[in-house]
Amino acid sequence: MNENLKKILETAASGKGDLWRETEVAAKILLRGGYEGHEEDLSYIEDVQDCLELEKVLSQGQWYFQEADTWKYEFCEEYALKNFVFTFAEAAEIWGLSESTLRKAQFDGRFRENETRKSGKIWLVTRRAMERIYGPTPDK
């Protein structure tokens, strides 16, 4: 991998640009390597000049990295975290409640086992739990 491509991939992988999430994940996987077909993938993109060109090239065609478990795992995890698990603050905002309402529901036992958990000082709650108690996700 040449230095220019490495810089482009590092920039794309950083998540700081205006790129699709798929491009960020692909850049991380391409930088990490270690999958069958990695060299072929790199050879196809070695002449890209910037992140936008990289994104355009990646959006066209089939890639070996898409067969890697890392690709599948990154998207499953990201999708699940964004769509099925919320902090109490996020859930309260979405459902138009206060965080204290959710804390009270937690301590009153309204949530079932595995619907909430505490990570450090942050409470997490599943979408299913919120919809069971507070109704469908409000349209914004």
Rank of each mutant, 00 (worst) to 15 (best):
T70N: 07
R110T: 10
N114Y: 15
A26K: 01
A27T: 07
R117L: 10
E77S: 12
E40A: 13
L19R: 02
L30N: 03
K118I: 05
V85Q: 06
A26D: 00
Q60M: 12
D108M: 12
V25C: 05
Y44F: 15
A89P: 08
Q60H: 12
H38E: 10
G34R: 11
F111N: 05
Y79E: 11
L42N: 01
C51A: 15
L19H: 00
L102R: 04
H38Q: 10
M130E: 00
D18A: 11
E39Q: 11
C76S: 14
Y73D: 14
A68I: 04
A105C: 12
S43W: 12
E67S: 01
R103D: 05
N4A: 15
T126G: 04
A13E: 00
T126K: 04
A92Y: 04
K82Q: 10
L9N: 00
L58A: 03
V25I: 15
K104R: 10
D108G: 07
V25P: 02
E131Y: 09
G96W: 08
L42G: 04
T116C: 01
Y64P: 03
F86D: 01
L97R: 12
N4G: 08
E22W: 11
G33C: 07
L31E: 03
L9E: 03
A26W: 02
A27C: 06
L9H: 01
R32Y: 11
R112N: 15
K6W: 04
L81S: 10
T23N: 07
G15K: 01
T11R: 06
A26I: 01
G61R: 04
F84C: 13
F86L: 05
K82P: 06
S43D: 15
K28P: 01
Y35L: 04
E115A: 14
A92L: 05
A89T: 15
R127A: 09
K7Q: 13
A68Y: 02
D18I: 07
A80E: 14
E53H: 08
Y44G: 08
N83R: 08
R112T: 13
E90Q: 15
K118D: 00
V125D: 03
L31K: 02
K7P: 03
K82R: 13
S119E: 14
K121Q: 13
D50T: 09
Q60L: 12
Y35D: 00
E53G: 06
Y79N: 12
S14W: 02
L19M: 13
F107A: 12
A13H: 01
M130P: 00
F86H: 01
A12Q: 00
D50Y: 05
D41W: 02
F75I: 10
I94Y: 03
E74D: 05
D69T: 09
G61C: 05
S100M: 10
S100F: 09
A26M: 00
Y44H: 15
R103Y: 10
M1I: 09
L102M: 09
E90K: 15
Y79H: 13
K104C: 07
E40Y: 12
